[in-house]
Design a protein around this nucleic acid. Structure first.
Lengths: 236, 236
DNA sequence: GTCGTGCGTACCGCTGAATGGAACGGCGGG
DNA sequence: CCCGCCGTTCCATTCAGCGGTACGCACGAC
């Protein structure tokens, strides 16, 4: 894991020497461990070094926390994409962050910082706020305690403002985000709730701030989220 | 890895004792290793045992072999889905099998055996045949040597027939599959080629055999594949 | 041409960490 | 009620991982 996590999110390949340097291992140790990792196809040898291997992807695809959700949500995300023609996201909460499970992009859409399997802070994303509004109070406190870091000029950094906004989200069932994580981009999100009314995930659409009218799509996002919630609660 | 690979594709959670039994480890060994895996969030403790953890999903999402392809293909897959309203697949070759990278499902579509991160034999799937037709000859020989296992009544199991079909695919640029892996399901696939004309991946649409007219959608699938090929070759 | 540097690879003696047997408390079913 | 299975902890033995060292190679500077 020390070796595997030495790969930063957007690095394709690293040399043995670079890995040894980053991890503080002796070159011979890194060499031997990489041989073992290669034999499991957890990493692959390339002309210029090593990169993460396909078995990691295969294992990751089996992870229950994301698999059930993804399979249940897939058709609804497709519908939502078709109805709105905007970038669609599915995410789950994890500590003070959100982890993106799925992303449907259209050609020519805005370039958003999210990535399948990537993380963003909860307080400055649509999906994050949607889930915070329907989370145990401790989670909000943890987010506030971690500090509302400013990621863009319009990021909400005042705890009071955030609390107030979450109350509005609870009332309307939809979360809005206007250039709070990236300038020029806006977002409409809705939570996916379990039987107890707690958010287990959220869906959102994201688009250019001057092109996407939140009021027009709010009900579509909400409908998709409700559809997933219903399927998750089972055939009861 | 012995512990992680003890989880079969559709098992959600396993007990410590069951893991020890499957792997042949002593219970105490399995216990200690699971503690370590848990600390990395590679597995998570549940009331009834352990399950694969989110970090595996996050790591898997970084794997270059799938990430670049997925990001390049995403908009084209979305277009294809919208144009056809059928289940869309993106897959890459791996030995005598194919690994699915992405899947877009519509509501009410047929239930297909594929799964993101899952594998199927190359010889009985549309994407598999599309890629075999544009693969180094060794790969086809390897597939034949491994044996064309029958998965459905109409699976092609005769080497000669398969060779002939691949020639046709090369000519038309599109592969067809009619109930060769699952009864009632048909498939239209096209390869994504690199600069040397070798298949690096394939896209397909899948639907009910009596509902999906291959002739009508062949060009759409081919167009999507060509679009991805073009993007992959870069902005040259 | 020649040196210097950084790379991947291989060897091997030492040591500390992994192993698994044994034992215990808790729980549920027969 | 007791038996069996589970998860957990402890501990002595041993063996496998560690990393210092060294080698061949490719490349660039001088």
């Amino acid at each position: 894991m020390t070796l595997l996590t030495a790969f930063r999110p957007d690095e394709v390949e690293l040399s043995l020497a670079e890995l040894a340097r980053r991890t503080g291992m002796a070159k011979s140790t890194a060499h031997r461990l990489l041989r073992e990792l290669t034999s499991w196809d957890l990493v692959e040898r390339t002309p210029g070094g090593v990169r993460l291997g396909m078995r990691l992807f295969e294992l990751g695809s089996q992870v229950p926390r994301q698999r059930g959700l993804r399979e249940a949500a897939a058709p609804f995300l497709a519908d939502l994409f078709e109805a709105t023609h905007e970038t669609v996201h599915l995410a789950i909460p994890d500590g003070v962050e959100v982890v993106y499970l799925q992303k449907l992009e259209r050609r020519g859409g805005p370039k958003v910082p999210s990535r399948v399997g990537g993380r963003l802070p909860a307080h400055c994303t649509g999906v994050g706020k949607a889930m915070l509004a329907f989370a145990p109070p401790e989670r909000l406190e943890a987010v506030l305690a971690a500090g509302l870091r400013r990621r863009a000029p319009r990021t909400v950094v005042a705890p009071g403002l955030l609390r107030q906004e979450l109350a509005e989200i609870r009332e309307r069932g939809v979360a809005l985000e206007h250039e709070e994580s990236t300038v020029g981009i806006t977002c409409v999100a809705a939570p996916i709730l379990d039987a107890e009314g707690m958010a287990v995930a959220a869906v959102s659409i994201t688009g250019w701030v001057n092109r996407l009218d939140p009021a027009r799509f709010a009900s579509a996002v909400r409908t998709a989220a409700l559809g997933v919630s219903r399927v998750l609660r089972g055939p009861s």
